[in-house]
């Protein structure tokens, strides 16, 4: 059959429609940020309207296509004098189907009923396998066209003119947005713990949590009891990067990359770093077995005036601990 050239009309029309609907969407999304919400609604409305129009256009095109196809067959038949067999319809005219069943059979499935199958069976069999000349299921054809249209729309949106972000742009936006949100979220917490104001905790539950964090994250290098291993010993009074709560907190937070101590600020919350630093302080003088040789210099707790933090009311701190860590 030579109908294929006429079916070519179909995708071309589809493309035109798709280009239009994409342009409309693009126009809608370029609106001012202030009108973002309105533009979102507009986008939805336009998309729905566009889709509806698209479906109507598609049905129309299918109809035109079928009409042209029949005409051509008739013309060719007139020339050659051959008789065109009539197409076997999907639904028997006399069938007692209701409206919706009829619509489904005709416009969704378009399958020749099994009873009239003989009329559309090719006479040749391959090792006994016969083939029917059923029409393509309309829903399948339309699905195919839709995906093609979607593909062009996608390429337009991301590459040929739309507002689609590149991978890098999307990433930068994600990071910027998170930064802003974080600034807002943390704004209320004026006393967020950092190395300048951190104090050692002494209450049992905080130290218990600190111990848990220590066992899970620090013990691999510093030993289960802080005796040292890959990293230095915490049970002696020697410190490589300064003892005392503030220095320990700082070392945990930023790490010492040259010496293999990683920065933990992406993995541990400030309050968690405070707890684990406080726990580490409790290891002083515990004298566990298999201690690593001392490294660094002796740190005396009373050296700096600011070191005397244990005496300043630690009770105020748990109030700052966010609820989700309890």
């Amino acid at each position: 059959m030579k109908s294929k050239k006429y079916t070519l009309v179909l995708p071309l029309v589809m493309l035109a429609v798709s280009g239009w609907s994409q342009a409309v969407q693009a126009a809608a999304t370029t609106a001012e940020p202030a009108a973002q919400q309105l533009s979102d609604i507009m986008t939805i409305i336009l998309t729905v309207a566009g889709s509806a129009l698209f479906i109507v256009a598609m049905i129309y095109v299918v109809k035109v296509n079928q009409f042209l196809y029949k005409k051509v067959l008739q013309l060719e038949a007139q020339k050659s004098g051959a008789v065109i067999p009539e197409e076997v319809p999907a639904v028997e005219a006399a069938a007692g189907d209701d409206f919706w069943t009829r619509m489904r059979k005709q416009y969704w499935e378009d399958a020749v009923p099994i009873e009239r199958e003989e009329e559309i069976t090719f006479h040749h069999a391959y090792d006994g396998i016969r083939e029917l000349d059923n029409r393509l299921p309309p829903w399948w054809v339309n699905l195919f066209f839709l995906t093609v249209v979607w593909a062009f729309g996608y390429m337009y949106y991301y590459h040929w003119g739309g507002d689609g972000l590149s991978s890098t742009e999307r990433y930068n936006l994600e990071v910027e947005t998170a930064k802003k949100e974080l600034a807002v979220a943390l704004a209320g917490r004026a006393n967020a713990v950092d190395e300048s104001n951190v104090t050692a905790l002494t209450d049992g539950s905080s130290l218990g949590e600190g111990e848990l964090i220590f066992k899970n994250t620090c013990a691999a290098c510093h030993g289960q009891q802080g005796e040292g291993g890959i990293g230095p010993n915490f049970a002696d009074e020697y410190w490589l990067h300064g003892g005392g709560i503030k220095n320990i907190f700082k070392t945990i937070k930023y790490g010492v990359p040259d010496k293999g101590m990683i920065s933990w600020q992406a993995q541990l919350k400030p309050t968690d770093m405070q707890k684990v630093a406080s726990y580490i302080l409790t290891l002083q003088g515990t004298n566990p077995p298999n201690q690593k040789a001392p490294q660094g210099e002796i740190w005396k707790e009373d050296e700096g005036a600011a070191q005397d933090s244990t005496s300043t009311a630690p009770e105020t701190l748990p109030a700052e601990v966010p609820a989700d860590t309890q």
Partner: peptide
Amino acid sequence: PKAANRPVYSYKLS
């Protein structure tokens, strides 16, 4: 189609 002993639904679809 051999096991089902039925004709293939649509040659066009193939």
